[in-house]
Design a protein around this nucleic acid. Structure first.
Lengths: 231, 231
DNA sequence: CCGTGTGTTCACGCGATCGTCACCTCCCCT
DNA sequence: AGGGGAGGTGACGATCGCGTGAACACACGG
């Protein structure tokens, strides 16, 4: 469920961590360069970040400093082969949340990732993500609301989630199964019209103004798609 | 500044920790029994708790379990002479935020306490901070009071904290969980109406004047939001 | 020891929300 | 052109969220 960003240049270790985190119910993403990791940290907001200190691109120290300077609050767990007291204290001082010395047990890593994600509740529901603007439609995750021509669309939480999910993949067709899975947490549907009804209500609210114009398009037999123009 | 609760039965170690934490700008409080520590954790809400596992009264394990079961969200750093992988993993699993094996360096302890308090579950220090003005509403952190048209609203400390928290993120929807965590230091809520009641009283006090006008808006199924206009 | 101020929990009730269903419309394929 | 199935639409009912008033718990000051 929760995403974990692994910034580690050793393929073997990264894969091992990913495997164990997956088994524990996390959704790990691996990156082998510091600069790439920083970019992904900025855009997709993972619940936790596991960071190696020795990295190509930019090293872990600069990674930490930059991330904190930019105000990114993601819990960061440093893993490193070097584990002198000075290293540990310094990393913690400049913004690390935890420090594990290699070699470490995967069990402990998983436990510490769990602990970090547990307390990082704050990005769970609100706050994550930028506003998305598509023509006169503005989708604001911070307010959990959408606006048309600056006027609130009065979306309910579920409606908003659907719209936001479509907006994250705007231009792409999103299947019903995907929506049902991500928003309702259901696995399979036999004849479930839940999504359809929700989309209808959504359309009633956001397509009302610009008549003749529908933001949410239907892909027959597949799913729904939100218009792509990023304004 | 920030209070740190030290639950440790060895006087010498406790005093050492207290001394170093004081030097680092913390306000340590020592307790030598588990049951007493738990009471103080419940009563005064420290920013961080440092917990030894071997204790008279109730031991650290039960301390951890009880605190978390009660929904107390204070970051807890476990320190222990026993440091097997199993111990560490288990402690983290049942709610510890960090685990240090004795003997440890005081520098590292301080660094980890800093890291834990940094991601501060709660906004302990209300004192610093600018006044926030929203139309005729003035929120003054120094006075711990709000004013409407220059007249005191007579807010209680808790009411003020809620208002201030909303004001810091004005325009953004703040979830109940977030408020409960930041102000009351609880992590999970089962069916807790504390926030609702507090908000009701807040509204009674600050919305009284400008009738027809509510500063605090409800986002159904999500949380509360304070009006955005910075005057 | 008892009022008072403050904070938390409880119980009730209304209204918002959301899933389901039935029926209708439209698309796609043959 | 017609049939079957996918999707749109409107309505209904159960549930849940939350406002509200009151009871309850607790520390403080006299």
């Amino acid at each position: 469920m929760s995403k974990v960003l692994i910034v580690e240049d050793d393929e073997v270790i990264a894969q091992g961590m990913a495997r164990h985190l997956t088994a524990a119910g996390f959704d790990p993403v691996c990156v082998n360069r510091g600069d790439l990791g920083l970019q992904r940290l900025r855009f997709e907001h993972p619940a936790v970040c596991v960071l190696d200190l020795m990295l190509p691109g930019i090293d872990g120290w600069r990674f930490l400093e930059t991330a904190r300077a930019e105000g990114l609050g993601t819990p960061i767990i440093v893993v490193s082969a070097r584990g002198t007291e000075h290293d540990r204290v310094h990393a913690l001082e400049i913004g690390a949340d935890d420090y594990l010395v290699k070699p470490f047990s995967m069990k402990e890593l998983v436990a510490r990732v769990k602990a970090a994600s547990r307390r990082g509740v704050r990005t769970e529901s609100v706050e994550r993500g930028e506003r998305i603007e598509i023509e006169e439609l503005v989708i604001d995750p911070r307010e959990v609301q959408a606006y048309i021509d600056g006027e609130s669309a009065g979306l309910t939480p579920t409606e908003f989630k659907v719209l936001y999910q479509l907006a994250l993949d705007r231009g792409r067709v999103v299947t019903r199964e995907e929506l049902l899975q991500k928003i309702w947490g259901r696995r399979q549907m036999y004849r479930d019209r839940t999504v359809d009804v929700c989309v209808k209500r959504l359309r009633d609210k956001i397509d009302r103004r610009a008549s003749q114009h529908t933001f949410i398009q239907t892909r027959f037999g597949v799913g729904y798609k939100l218009e792509a123009q990023a304004k």
